[in-house]
Design a protein around this nucleic acid. Sequence first.
DNA 1: ACATCCAATAACGTATACATTAGCGTACGC
DNA 2: GCGTACGCTAATGTATACGTTATTGGATGT
Lengths: 237, 237
Amino acid sequence: MSAGGTSRVRSIGRAELAASGSLVETAYHTMRRRILDNVWPPGYRALEQELALELGMSRTPVREALIRMQNEGLVEVVPRHGMNVLPVSAEDMRDIYQMLTALESTAAELVALRRPCAAELKPLQDASRAMMRALRADDLEQWAAADESFHQQLVAMSGNRLLIDAVQNCWDRAHRARMVTLRMRPKPTPSTREHMEVVDRIREGDARGAFEAHRAHRERGGRELLAILERFRLKNL
Amino acid sequence: MSAGGTSRVRSIGRAELAASGSLVETAYHTMRRRILDNVWPPGYRALEQELALELGMSRTPVREALIRMQNEGLVEVVPRHGMNVLPVSAEDMRDIYQMLTALESTAAELVALRRPCAAELKPLQDASRAMMRALRADDLEQWAAADESFHQQLVAMSGNRLLIDAVQNCWDRAHRARMVTLRMRPKPTPSTREHMEVVDRIREGDARGAFEAHRAHRERGGRELLAILERFRLKNL
DNA sequence: ACATCCAATAACGTATACATTAGCGTACGC
DNA sequence: GCGTACGCTAATGTATACGTTATTGGATGT
């Protein structure tokens, strides 16, 4: 019998199926999104069979997707207790921000060395402007999206696939914590200015400057976030 | 029937089996080692069934191990052509060294901030001394092992699990290229001195100095390696 | 009432079955 | 001789089967 099965429960939308022909991909994308969007919050547990049933497939593709998600640090798979959505502790966030600081500033440096033309820098400036607009409109979600867009663009321009993937993984792990703390921090005014500063250094081809500027930006952001986690006693997110 | 199967071919030693109770782990460790040791050189291809037969297990654990190795960039799995041991191009090496530079210098910085006592620094000094000894004895394999040991220790002391894993993956990818080029480069005399320098900065608690020293060390190493790849036209390793 | 031991159960790890489909060889037409 | 279409084979993706074993609940003894 095909993927339809005998009397399969189709409890997910068709949209996810379109993503790729493979059930493993479907399972991976669906589960990853549920975790990032906090639909399956930290500590959420489910057995392979339950997941298979919910996703409308057999255990096999679910297992293979879980292996990937475990490698990425999103879940833990404990033999007789199913998967477990991993909480992110303050220490984890420290580690994540150390990685992001190291990798993203290197990305900024690499982009500066490449001396991109004005057209190439446009997406970065657009993202910065979107941040300012969102800030004026007091739309923090919008601001976070634009911020994320800026960082993604910057890293993508580094041309280092390894680095791009590693940073993406860090963002994934940190996503929930960023969202939760969004309303707890002071207005993120400095961020926009710091982004601009990084773009300026890149435009000037000042690799070291871009590196240092972005490093400072990330270090400040990390300190700020950790301070909030401590102040609000947020041990796990 | 148990893992023994009906008339299974036991073509691997028993040693690999001891590693862990799980066949997936066995498959992973065995295949990873074969790739790192160039027993399965870049471009080596094999079908899931062939691998299963050779490892004395069914396709299932082999597939699960392959997923992990694909995530780690060691192999590629092409639907009808089995797995393919990925070659590492000069561009890949550039990317890898950029990552290593960013992450290891951060590790050096973190270790310095931690202000380790003399006893904690001993392993690093031992590794450095082992490098000097190997160099005097003209034993490059020994030197490479000691060098690797130094870097591993340093990174391990950072206390950042994420960073440790990412660096380990970079080393895995670069391993073959390092081994092949070992005899092509000038005597790696500066490396030892540079390592000592990093240890000195760490002992002084000079985080920035340790960071910069290690960064310079890695940048030089990367430049040197890339130059060799170019000089000898080593497109793929 | 509490700790301990045992049996039933259920979840997993692994093996196997099976339908699908890409790739390849062959036969045919030009 | 060369290009194209067709059918076969084989490798995969997924489903299912099955033995092993941790866990859990209860029974038993103190």
